[in-house]
């Protein structure tokens, strides 16, 4: 598998609302493969495969969680907002502060020498966490406007076997899979058209998916089904419930808001081809773009495939590339099958 592509993706910062660099990378990458992507402005990108009357959506979000500079004090310490991030993982992280100039910063904390015993026991509350870029206050204020995003400075890394760790594997593993599916299907005859969406601001409001659904409704297009690819919780020493093992295939979502009939077809294809997967039971909110797409316009039956991932929304997310590989097989087989397009 083209690991380099995943590692390239992992090195592109793509915080929610600031996905321009990822978009530019994708446009270029697709262009090399002979595919013209359409720029959807703040909503992301889309590109198409296949032809015919039947239309399906395939959506992956390209944004990742990040810290945001909320306030800079007179000494130049940068205080943070951290949407979707556990403040306990912030201390002593290295960050890139993406202001007018990129700055290296560390999330500072008082050493134990200056703390009471009580203070040492409790996590540092988020309002007390700050980034130190080591520059004078005035210079920081000039270089780092309020709203500047700060991302983790960690290069992707191969772990043992087929596992990798990197910043923003949620959902760059999904983006990687979408690109692999695009390549795999590029030369194939498809039962209809697939419109891929590389969507923005999933973390928070699912804006890109909302835009995709709305645009189809507004233009009177009817969408036969949608595939959403995202990540889900991987099991580890601590997380057992509502989590799925790494390396045993992706999960297919099952629940009231997801399409039963499409799920049944996906399952039968998986067992036909001996592709491993887990069933992921989900109630009213899946926390993915499926929530939005399935009820956009006149309703779109939705399939949700998620890659198990450990340590979600931290800088040390881990996925197993075997799961990407098996998902690639499943999705590219399924999308060529007439039965998926006729149910």
């Amino acid at each position: 598998m083209n690991r380099e592509l995943l590692f390239d993706l992992l090195q592109i910062p793509s915080p929610s609302g600031h996905e321009e660099r990822m978009k530019a990378f994708l446009v270029k990458y697709l262009d090399v493969h002979g595919i013209k992507a359409q720029d959807l402005g703040p909503a992301g990108l889309s590109w198409g495969l296949g032809e015919g009357d039947k239309l399906a959506f395939f959506s992956v979000h390209i944004d990742q969680v990040a810290f945001v500079a909320d306030r800079i004090d007179d000494e130049g310490y940068i205080y943070l907002k951290m949407p979707g991030i556990d403040p306990r993982i912030a201390p002593s992280q290295e960050l890139t502060v993406r202001g007018k100039r990129e700055l290296v910063g560390v999330v500072g904390m008082r050493p134990p020498h200056f703390l009471s015993e009580e203070e040492q026991k409790a996590p540092i509350p988020s309002e007390k966490l700050y980034v130190d870029v080591g520059l004078p206050g005035e210079e920081v204020k000039r270089l780092v406007p309020v709203g500047t995003v700060c991302t983790w400075r960690l290069e992707p890394l191969a772990l043992l076997g087929s596992r990798v760790t990197g910043v923003g594997l949620d959902n760059k593993a999904g983006v990687f899979l979408a690109l692999l599916v695009t390549e795999a299907l590029g030369s194939k005859k498809l039962p209809g058209r697939i419109r891929f969406f590389a969507s923005t601001q999933e973390e928070g409001v699912m804006f890109g998916a909302g835009f995709a659904g709305r645009s189809a409704y507004k233009s009177g297009e009817s969408v036969l089904f949608a595939v959403v690819v995202d990540t889900t919780f991987g099991t580890d020493h601590e997380v057992k419930d509502s989590a799925f093992p790494l390396g045993k295939g992706s999960t297919l979502g099952v629940g009231p808001i997801l399409s039963k009939s499409h799920l049944a077809i996906m399952r039968s294809i998986a067992s036909e081809l001996s592709i491993p997967y887990s069933l992921e039971p989900l109630t009213s909110f899946t926390g993915t773009e499926a929530d939005v797409l399935s009820i956009s316009g006149k309703g779109i039956p939705t399939i949700l495939l998620s890659i198990p991932l450990r340590n979600m929304h931290s800088p040390v997310e881990i996925v197993d590339l075997d799961d990407v590989e098996s998902s690639l097989k499943l999705l590219s087989a399924a999308l060529q099958r007439e039965d998926l397009w006729s149910s």
Binding site: P42, A43, P83, V146, Q201, G210, A212
Partner: peptide, 21 residues
Amino acid sequence: QKGLVSDGESAADTLARTGIQ
């Protein structure tokens, strides 16, 4: 002036969910 707010759902959030920025 530039600001960030985080005290509950705003009109902008509600609209973004339906695909309007």
